[in-house]
């Protein structure tokens, strides 16, 4: 004789399956007892509430969670920057290049190079004129921007959609705030 399987007893006791769908029940006292006991237990276990904690507990729990979350997320702007949308990184680099170019250009005007576009006349060729000849990063930026102007960059497609310019106009508020902070920090460091 095949007795009811545990899942069949559960289904019948919970009422999701009709007793009539299991003819075996009418002939097996053991299975009938199992179904009866299961129903009794369902009734006994139901409606057992969890003791209600103090009404003050809920806000305390929220505060604990908030504190724990805050402790887990220390301020790490560079690490956070890494997790931002990938567009932010080229945006920051692009802006840094533009800012550096403006700063360098405003400090060290040089004669136009024959054959070069007129706008590039302000580009820096003489590193000594910067007053920071040992600054490797400025020298690097100077190399990058020596023959570059905005029009040339545009013609080269560097300012098209998806570029730094595009990325900056599509940043979220928090990202813009952080970017502004980084730029200010960089400008302050360069003494502009």
């Amino acid at each position: 004789m095949d007795h009811l399987k545990p899942e069949e007893v559960v289904d019948i006791a919970e009422g999701t399956r009709a007793e009539s769908s299991a003819p075996h029940l009418s002939t097996c006292e053991l299975c009938r007892t199992q179904v009866r006991e299961m129903r009794a237990m369902l009734s006994a276990v139901a409606d057992v509430d969890v003791p209600e904690p103090s009404p003050l507990f809920w806000d305390r729990l929220s505060t604990r969670v908030r504190d724990a979350v805050a402790a887990q997320t220390p301020s790490r702007p560079w690490a956070d920057l890494w997790t931002w949308p990938r567009a932010v990184v080229p945006a920051a680099v692009g802006i840094a290049v533009v800012v550096a170019a403006v700063l360098l250009g405003s400090r060290a005007p040089v004669p136009p190079v024959p054959g070069a576009p007129a706008v590039a006349a302000n580009a820096v060729n003489d590193r000594d004129a910067l007053g920071t000849p040992d600054d490797a990063s400025l020298n690097f930026v100077a190399d990058l921007t020596a023959g570059l102007d905005w029009d040339a960059a545009s013609e080269a497609g560097l300012t098209a959609g998806g570029s730094a310019e595009h990325a900056v106009t599509h940043l979220r508020d928090a990202e813009l705030r952080e970017l502004a902070r980084l730029i200010k920090e960089e400008v302050a460091r360069s003494g502009a």
Partner: peptide, 24 residues
């Protein structure tokens, strides 16, 4: 699986009945 859940539930109720004894 659903079958495993129902089997677990069945055995949980059986064990609970033993633990509670006459209380049920």
């Amino acid at each position: 699986s659903v079958g495993a859940v129902k089997a677990n539930f069945f055995h949980a109720m059986g064990n609970l009945k033993k633990l509670l004894g006459d209380d049920t």
